[in-house]
Nucleic acid binder design. Structure first.
Lengths: 231, 231
DNA sequence: TCTCATGGCGATACAGTGTATTGAGCGATA
DNA sequence: TATCGCTCAATACACTGTATCGCCATGAGA
């Protein structure tokens, strides 16, 4: 209807051909965004944009944002390989622990999402199942207790490792230099003399390998289990 | 200047006398809101409203929302009483662990905030210091390792306990009945036969006391430490 | 007592969020 | 060909944290 000649009219903003979507594509896009820019970059608008789609289109595949986050979590559980079928309980649990740690390091947002709703996704369930299977005790309550304890340690350890890692990245310094980075505040606090051990930790403690620290703690837990159940 | 008679003019909306504020008042109000309605109820607008103030007024006392959350966390650390000065390492660490668990149960949002930035508030520092003090080992690296491991377990265990508690509250059912509540989905999953142990856990496992489960896991960790360091 | 300056605080504004609703366009069927 | 129905985009709404602006009340000086 416009009487301008075609050449003067701007093309319609070249609709980027609407990709066909799928739940998998959406979850993968969300994961990529989260890996690169943190959880803050996971919004319906941004995920949709990454897929050349309007935000509302996602609601055809996912009912709510929490659901999307659940799917992301389950996807990461899917990356975790179960321990070899016939491994003994100790190496089996060690395997699971390391797999979890590695997954959490690949996807730093992972640990943040674990504090929310319980995970009932298929990969999560498979993960729990295979972990339970490594502990061959008659009493199912004891099996659960052992696995829960190990998982609790793993969560906590990974969480604090990631937290520390973020703090380092934020200041661009290593743990050794952290106190200098956090400025006069920590200096003043330490100078009060109220925290002598903390002072020693920050000044004397060697910058140990994170993996080693993780293993040491894990060793405590596994040793304790061995002692208690006479393995 | 209006020529309506006074009686026809509405009174100015009776300003609720502007309470004098303080950082402490703000933090306490925020904590109360979080205790009652969860972290979602902690917004500058809502906190300010609870104090009969405009939202922007808070910025006089707190520079950013994260800062407010940090203050809330530190306040909770302040509620945690240190172990008696001369307690042995085992009962000292046990004391700390239970205190943390209790605090986290009083303030369910607490555990959610621990995953963020590291805590350098005065109460947090005092807490770490007194925990370190319970482990009397010569090597400061070993002290740190022991404390970190115990804290990691505690975080993880509390986290999963709170998560489970929330899930129960959401469905209004206990863990035993959980599978029935989560509807046909879990039934179907279990019916596939791919998760036999999970099935046993859900059907056979007795509804053990949470505190007991916590203590058992903690026992593993402490036993492991004892074994490794020959206590 | 009157005037003026200062500073604290509320109102407003903005960019972002998740999501409900609406409406347009298109493909398939009658 | 006409109509139905479905898909998706645009719009709208309530809410977030925070920057900016402007009013008003208070305190100082005349």
């Amino acid at each position: 209807m416009s009487n301008e000649p075609v050449w003067d009219r701007p093309e319609p903003p070249s609709k980027p051909s609407p990709t066909p979507l799928s739940r998998e594509l959406i979850v993968n896009a969300a994961i990529r965004l989260a890996d690169e820019g943190g959880l803050d970059d996971v919004s319906f608008r941004k995920v949709a944009a990454a897929l050349n789609a309007g935000p509302m289109r996602l609601y055809g595949y996912v009912e709510t944002k929490d659901e999307l986050l659940d799917l992301m979590v389950d996807e990461v559980y899917g990356e975790i390989t179960p321990p070899p079928a016939k491994s003994d309980w100790r190496s089996g649990l060690k395997h699971v622990a390391h797999e979890m740690r590695n997954a959490a390091k690949r996807h730093e947002w992972f640990i943040d999402l674990l504090s929310g709703r319980p995970h009932q996704g298929p990969h999560s369930l498979a993960h729990i199942e295979s972990t339970l299977a490594t502990v061959r005790l008659a009493d199912i309550d004891q099996v659960l207790g052992v696995v829960s304890a190990v998982m609790a340690y793993v969560f906590g350890a990974v969480r604090s490792e990631i937290t520390e890692l973020r703090a380092e990245r934020a200041t661009g310094l290593t743990e050794e230099q952290w106190q200098r980075a956090s400025g006069p505040y920590m200096e003043r606090m330490l100078a009060t003399g109220r925290f002598p051990l903390l002072g020693r930790v920050m000044h004397e403690s060697t910058d140990r390998d994170h993996a080693e620290v993780f293993d040491t703690g894990l060793g405590y837990v596994l040793d304790g289990i061995a002692v208690r159940h006479g393995f």
